[in-house]
Computed example of a mutant assay.
Amino acid sequence: MTSRNWVRLFMTTLLVGGVTAAIVGFIVRWNEFQSYFTEFKIMDILSAIIFLIGMGFLISVISQMGFFSYLTIHRFGLGIFKSVSLWNSIQVVLVLFGLFDLVYLRYVNFAKPGDSILLYFVPALLLLIVGLIVAWVKSKQTNREAFIPAFFFMIVVTLVEWVPVLRINSQNWFYLMMFALMACNAYQLLILHKLNMKSEQERQQRKNQTGSKVKNNKKINKKPSV
């Protein structure tokens, strides 16, 4: 990927994180912000928007760190196991462990007496559904072999990035970070191959332009025949 397209990916992912965090933040924390709108507190509304967008920027940076880390780990995995099918099988097992831990560990650590474990399945099911949809779209846009890596990234890497909030179990931050991470991760995953293709086209254009300049210079510098 060219540096220009990398900067584009970075900036657009920041925008996705900021917008998602602002929208979800107002939804999950509406009880706190409702009075700002009913009483027309413009400065408080602007402060809340800036704060939520800033948090979205931070979450998007975490997302991008996880994304590029996974790209490196994926290459290492292919190199170590020497088999795409074996590496994919390991990723599927890790996905199952990740979803199980999301339900079981949260229930064990945070459930109150009388709480149903079914409530703790909701985030896992939501993450699973989004992961399947994004992986399916990615495989349609590229190839079938991309399904498992995309699915693993959307589930396991999102969970790893989500850990700071999972530990404190704050409902507001829980869903804010969840949706912002899923949006940023899905965006990066689905836009990467397009930016790679664009970067390759740009490199080819520069190569052709350089070749044309060299040919023109040779014609100009060619000595006349006697």
Rank of each mutant, 00 (worst) to 15 (best):
I148K: 02
S63D: 10
L176M: 10
F10P: 02
L99H: 07
R206A: 11
Y120G: 03
Y120F: 13
L166H: 03
V95R: 04
F174S: 02
T13P: 00
G131C: 07
W30V: 12
I220Y: 15
P113K: 10
L94S: 10
T12Q: 11
I45K: 05
L118Y: 06
S60C: 12
Y175A: 06
L127A: 04
F81I: 06
M197E: 12
L86I: 15
T38N: 06
Q171K: 14
S83C: 09
V122N: 02
A111D: 05
Q209A: 15
L52F: 11
F76S: 13
V84P: 00
T142C: 07
G131K: 03
E39P: 00
S35L: 11
F174V: 02
S89Q: 14
N208P: 04
R203S: 13
R4N: 15
S85Q: 12
F100K: 13
F153I: 00
N109A: 11
Q209N: 13
F179V: 00
K82P: 06
L166P: 01
I90K: 03
L190A: 06
H74I: 07
I73F: 11
I27G: 00
C184M: 00
T13H: 00
S35T: 14
R4Q: 15
T142S: 08
I73S: 09
M154Q: 06
I23S: 01
L52E: 04
M178Y: 09
K222F: 11
Q204L: 15
V165E: 01
L96I: 05
S212P: 04
I59G: 04
L46F: 15
N208G: 08
N185I: 08
F179T: 00
F26R: 11
F37V: 07
L71H: 14
L190V: 12
L119R: 13
T20S: 09
V92W: 01
E161A: 14
L126I: 15
Q91N: 13
S89P: 07
M177P: 01
F76G: 11
F33S: 10
M43E: 15
L128A: 05
F81H: 08
W87T: 03
T38K: 05
V7L: 15
N208C: 09
